[in-house]
Nucleic acid binder design. Sequence first.
DNA 1: GTTTTCTATCGTCAGAGAAA
DNA 2: TTTCTCTGACGATAGAAAAC
Length: 309
Amino acid sequence: MTESRQENSVVSVAETDVPQLVSVSQHQVSVASGQVVPTMAVVQLPGGQTLQVHSVIQAAQPSSVIQTPQMQTIQVGSLPESDTSQESGDSTSDTQKRRELLSRRPSYRKILSDLSSDSPVVSKIEEEKGEEEGTTTINNVPIPTPIYQTTGGQYIAIAQGGGAIQIANGAEHLQSLGLTSSGTGHGTPTIVQYAQTSDGQQFFLPGSQVVVQASGDTYQIRTPTGGLSQGVVVASPVSLPSPQGVAEEATRKREMRLLKNREAARECRRKKKEYVKCLENRVAVLENQNKTLIEELKALKDLYCRKAD
DNA sequence: GTTTTCTATCGTCAGAGAAA
DNA sequence: TTTCTCTGACGATAGAAAAC
């Protein structure tokens, strides 16, 4: 019998002629008067299998009342949603599915989207996230200082206000130079041009027309002369390698991660609450149906017994 | 009124799984 | 493979309820 291709097969009472009808053997039905017993009925399936019915959790037609006095029927059906009933077929695919379900944690987001087709929940979440991240980005991320690297391994940082140039060798910050030339630093340069000279290095800052010349330990800032255009190369901006910068970056990343995780945890808890509420509602509904069906079954049993006498 | 217990909520971490 | 997301677990904290 192909009772169910899903794991969540249920047994329900039906009065209509449906393909999968099996009979309840009368003498095996055990319903104590006035109380629910663990095993309501044992159902003989056409394939020779028996099915213990502990509870009826969904009726094919909840409002239907069986009125035929002769033989009652039980329909083996399946729910569209996941359930924990074990009355499933024993195919290998089912076993695999069950194993998957056991090994994987449930995603409340997925479960809820399955339970309710109300997609606005997720979209609302994403909207909220987007809003929050947007504000966070605006508030927390600083405008980066342009950093340039020379072929000599030195780094040059141009301060945003245009007030200073910082020169560093490798990871160590060496010197901060104030710019005395007029109008320097406005309009952040994205490309630095420099020319290598015999006594040091000269760097052209295109926007400000300033040259930094390194000669030994001394640096000078002056306006460029025409003859230095030979051997001009282009250096691309690089990230700040100083330990301070690395630490700051790490801290910033950690804060971002914590913020995101905080939000995720909040969202997860909200989803979990919603999920539990949803389950509680289902329990209430199914308990009602169960009660009704138990009463129906009891009435039918009485009817059947009376007929047999 | 004070102390203790209970409950709910939050932030963080760790780990699994998904996505890039 | 790396990065991101989700969720269980844990501890901290605050407020309510119960016990004294």
